[in-house]
Design a protein around this nucleic acid. Structure first.
Lengths: 187, 187
DNA sequence: GTCTATATGAAGATAGAC
DNA sequence: GTCTATCTTCATATAGAC
C-alpha cells in the first residue's frame, strides 16, 4: 500500500470512531486530525470536504459489514445458527452499545434529520443486514414472510440497542437478545 | 398570562418543533428566532443559554406527556385498552414519524452522544411512558413481569419508529403496530 | 421589556511554502 | 505529498440604546 493510501485509511478509521462516539455534525475536522495524527491542512489533499469524508466512512462500514456477513454465511452451517449469530452482535459489543448505541442506527437517525441526501447511503448499511436476514428466513422455507420477519427482527434489535443505551442497561439488552433468540427458535 | 410568558412559550414551541425536525445541535438560535417571530437579541432575556432553552423544551414535553397519560388513564376503562392506545401513537403521527422518527428517541440518541449531562433529563420522557405501561401490565396482574413487558413493548415501538423512518415505510410501521397489538392480546 | 449592533470563538475550507 | 498560516462564515452570546 502506498503511503497516501495508508494515511487515507488512518483518517477514515479515526473519523469512523469519532462519528460513532460524537456524531457526524459534532465531530470537528481538527479532532479527526488530532486522532489520526494527520495535520488539519492535509485533509483537503485526501478529501475535498467533510461530507466526502463521511461518504468514505460509510463506504468502509459497508465493506466491513459485507465481509462479516460473507464470513458468517460460509462458517455457519444453518440459517438458524446465522440468525442467532446476528442477535449476538449487541452482546459482543455490549460496552459500546450501552455507551453509544448502534453505530448504524444513530448515524441513520442523525443523517435523516440533517443530511437528507446521504440518508440513502446510510440506509445501505441496514439493507445489507436486512437482506441477509431475509435470505436466512427464506432458506428456512418462510418464503412469504421472510421479508417481514427480517425487518421485524432487525427493528427489535434496533429498539433494544436504543433503549439499552438510553438507560445504560446491560441486563435489558441481554433480556431482549434472549427474547429474540426464543422467537427464532419457535419458527 | 403576562406578555413575557406568552413570548417565552412561543420560543419554546418553535424550538420544540425545530429540535425535532433538525436536531438540537443543528438548530441555530437565529432559526428559532425567525420561526417564533422573536428577534435574536431578545432570546437572552428569556434564556441564559441555548442549553437552558433545551431544558425548557424537555420540561414542556414532559408536561405534555404527563397530561396525555393522565387523560388516557381516566378516559380508558381497562389496562388493555390503554396499552392499545399507546401502540396507536405512531399511527396517529405517521407523517411525522416517517419523516423525523420518534421525537423522544431521536433526542435521546443525540444527547446521549453530545450532551451527556442532559441525558437523564431526556430519558425522563421515556420513564413516564415506561412507568405508565408498567402500571397497566401490573393491573393485568402480571406483577412479576410488568417491568420487563413495559420495557419490551416500548423498545419495540422505538425500533419500529426508527426503522420505519429510515425507510420512510408506512406499511412497516403499521405491520409492527399490528404485531404489538396481537402480542398484547395474547396476554 | 424590546431591539440593533457587535464581540467572540469555532469550524470548514484555502493558499502557498517546502 | 506534507505542512503552516490564514481566510471566511456562521453560531453563540453580549452590550447598551430605546
Amino acid at each position: 500500500m502506498k503511503k497516501g493510501e495508508a494515511n487515507r485509511k488512518r483518517i477514515v478509521d479515526a473519523a469512523n470512531q469519532l462519528f460513532y462516539h460524537k456524531g457526524y455534525n459534532q465531530t470537528a475536522f481538527s479532532e479527526v486530525a488530532e486522532a489520526s495524527g494527520i495535520p488539519k491542512g492535509n485533509f483537503y489533499y485526501y478529501f475535498k470536504s467533510k461530507e466526502e469524508l463521511l461518504e468514505a466512512v460509510i463506504d468502509q462500514r459497508i465493506e466491513d459489514i459485507r465481509c462479516m456477513l460473507d464470513e458468517w454465511q460460509q462458517r455457519l452451517a444453518t440459517p438458524r445458527e446465522r440468525l442467532h449469530r446476528f442477535t449476538r452482535i449487541p452482546l459482543n459489543e455490549i460496552d459500546d452499545v450501552v455507551r453509544y448505541g448502534c453505530p448504524m442506527g444513530s448515524l441513520n437517525v442523525e443523517l435523516g434529520k440533517t443530511q437528507l441526501h446521504l440518508k440513502s447511503r446510510a440506509s445501505e448499511m441496514f439493507d445489507l443486514f436486512i437482506n441477509w436476514l431475509e435470505k436466512q428466513f427464506a432458506e428456512m422455507s418462510y418464503r412469504e414472510q421472510a421479508r417481514g420477519y427480517a425487518l421485524h427482527l432487525f427493528a427489535n434489535a434496533q429498539g433494544a440497542a436504543l433503549v439499552g443505551s438510553v438507560y445504560s442497561d446491560r441486563m435489558f439488552i441481554k433480556a431482549e437478545v434472549t427474547r429474540m433468540d426464543d422467537w427464532i427458535d419457535t419458527l
